[in-house]
Amino acid sequence: MVRSSSHPRIGKLLAWGLTLALAASMLAPFLWMLSTSLMDELEVFRFPPRLVPETLRWDNYSGALSARPFGRYFLNSFVFAILIVLGQLFTAATAGYAFAKFEFKGRDKLFLLYLSTMMVPAVVVLIPRFLLIDTLGWIDTYAGLVSTELVSVWGVFLMRQYFRTVPKELEDAARIDGAGPWRVFWTISLPLAKPALATLGLFAFIDAWKNLLWPLVVTTSMNMRTVEVGIASFHGTFVFNWPYQMAAAVMAVLPIMLLFFFTQRYFTRGIQMTGFR
């Protein structure tokens, strides 16, 4: 149907138009966010609304920044995300490698068990995890924030798919030279898996950055909040100051957007490799 070659011009135009319209509608809220963030506090309460601010008020940003310790929020989010990335890379690479390269008793059953844990809704384990972290005395610490998130079963799946495509011959050569399985893994297989590791790392970083529920529950002091929790509470405090709120939103969105634009090819690869996300 869409592949009808009868009207290639019209089809192409339609496709272009639709894509542009879609892209515009995706970008519009972000542009509106940016525009509002530069408006005067009272300028926003106008109907019909002004689409572009009369004068650019950059001091909304400094105002929002000084109202809450945003620097600390960014640091927390960054530490949280980086530690999770490292943890997930390690656990997913080792487990994915085992599932892809070794034959052991009950392998397929165990792999199915791994996958089935993806069915468990986060909220079911949320309460017990919280109580566990509480017993360990890790509430409001980086350890508490990070420890529950160190394994991604999707990541294990991704790494398994990738390692299966790595030819056996490369490893065999090293094995003949007398290298043990861990050495083969570190020196041969892992460097070959860089693209998959980059993909997993990217997803892990974005997921950690976006995570709201867990940091909300497990942090209690202002200084341990992540960006997501921080701007959510900022939103609650400055309910009527839309420029302030939008300035905070822009600051939360910007880093991850930049990261994404430079790394998007890894993003699509991850979806292609596993077929889902």
Partner: peptide
């Protein structure tokens, strides 16, 4: 098209 899925949900909800 990916922007809404990858960026901060709280910021999106706010706008």
């Amino acid at each position: 098209l990916f922007l809404p899925t990858i960026t901060s949900l709280v910021a999106i909800a706010m706008v």
